[in-house]
Amino acid sequence: MKRDPRRSRILLLAWVVACFALSAVANLAVLAGAILAVAVLLPRQAPRAAWRALLTATPVTLAFLSFAWAYAHFITHAPPDLHAYAALALRAIALAFGTFAVLGAVDLLGALAPWPTLSRLLVLTLAQIHALRLLARESWLGLQSRLPRKPSARDGLRNAGGVTATLLTLSSRNAREISDALRSRGF
């Protein structure tokens, strides 16, 4: 389905404003309302966005805040205010959920078309990330298959150092090809 770039721009702008506004909210009911509002306004994107937020932002936020709460409890000898921690966790999750839902509903690169440098940089980066990640992953699997034991930190660092040279060489070659392609298309 083709998405209207103008609508995407408006939605992105509203999302940025909402993110900044929401980042100052500590009221649990307002934060829960914001999550509900996103789910109602973007019902098609909501399930996938919720799943992504559950997999990415939620574990990191909960792990960090659990540690912080327990440590603050330990050094102050009193249980810290749970409401503030809950609001922080809900705020972080609400922002992640909203981000995924909105980005699922917009044509990001189309919306960024008025800023050609940014959109080209995003295209150039995203176009290479997958291939380079595969290369790094295969290098790691190759290292594992060559060693009779589990790779140590030293093995990992040496492998990372080696693969960096490959990544830089490959990306430089890609950069030249992309540069030529851009020139040939009149950019």
């Binding site: 790094a136 693969v163 990306s171």
Partner: peptide, 20 residues
Amino acid sequence: LPAVGALTAVAFVLQTIMIP
């Protein structure tokens, strides 16, 4: 522009390399 896009991709991928 493409060179920086490529370097950014490399920097991104480096951040996905886990060291045990």
